[in-house]
């Protein structure tokens, strides 16, 4: 009678439903963390390439010299250029006056001589004045030329830097073939877009070594986009690039 009670297998498990709900909650939490918590990559980031250049510090100085140089020549050349013209205009009529008396030497030869002396005097004065004007003009022109030269030098400097950057970038990509002999020069005409993107590369003068030409061409294409100048006015659509295998 008591044996019937002996085995007790029924175990009361009230915790199944709450456990299932909690397990579900844990997984939903994990899913939420994965979807909202982790910052997944939405769009590919653009790669940034940084090039370091030795002569970059002077670039900052170059434009500083220019601004004072520019305003000064602007007002001066105008008066310089104009005065000579009136001078010529003034000198021009006197010869006419000289010529005019000439056709009528028959009635009175003397009056013709007198005006001639006058004319000579006047001419001499004119000449002196002209020479003076010319010398001042030359001085001013010299000054202007010097200013322009400075300006040009500054421009040339930044141009050189710009060209150097282009060359440097391309040079880094040239894989010089091992069997190049001597130091032949290859000249390329490169057309670029304002963004520096290389549009076309044309070999103008071969170095005589085909593999080297091709290596340079590949390097130019690989260097696209080319570095851009500091000042947009230095940008040139067509570039003439010269390369030698032994260039530093």
């Amino acid at each position: 009678m008591a044996e019937a009670l002996a085995p007790q297998f029924e175990h009361y498990e009230p915790s199944f439903v709450p456990s299932a709900a909690l397990a579900m909650a844990v997984h939903l939490l994990l899913a939420a963390i994965l979807v909202f918590g982790v910052r997944w990559q939405w769009r590919p980031l653009e790669s940034v390439m940084v090039e370091l250049w030795e002569p970059s510090p002077p670039v900052a100085e170059a434009p500083r010299i220019e601004p004072p140089a520019e305003p000064r020549p602007a007002p001066k050349p105008e008066p310089v250029v104009e005065p000579p013209k009136p001078d010529i205009a003034v000198t021009a009529p006197p010869p006419k006056a000289v010529v005019k008396p000439k056709p009528e030497p028959r009635p009175e030869p003397r009056p013709a001589a007198l005006p001639r002396e006058d004319v000579q005097k006047r001419l001499r004065e004119e000449l002196a004045r002209e020479q003076q004007a010319m010398s001042t003009a030359r001085e001013k022109q010299d000054f202007k030329a010097r200013l322009e030269g400075e300006q040009a030098a500054a421009a040339k400097k930044s141009m050189d830097i710009y060209a150097g950057r282009i060359r440097g970038k391309i040079r880094g990509n040239i894989v010089t073939p091992p069997d190049v002999k001597g130091n032949p020069e290859a000249i390329f005409d490169v057309i670029q877009l304002p963004t520096g993107e290389v549009l076309s590369v044309k070999l103008r003068k071969s170095s005589g070594h085909r593999a080297y030409d091709e290596a340079v061409e590949r390097a130019i294409l690989k260097s696209s986009p080319l570095p851009r100048p500091d000042k947009p006015e230095l940008f040139m659509r067509t570039l003439e690039l010269r390369f030698r295998p032994l260039d530093p």
Binding site: E13, P14, S15, F16, P18, S19, A20, L22, A23, M24, V26, H27
Partner: peptide
């Protein structure tokens, strides 16, 4: 994973 979490909770309570 779901099963193991289910058992984790039910065992915890038990």
């Amino acid at each position: 994973s779901f099963m193991s979490w289910l058992f984790i909770f039910s065992k915890l309570f038990a």
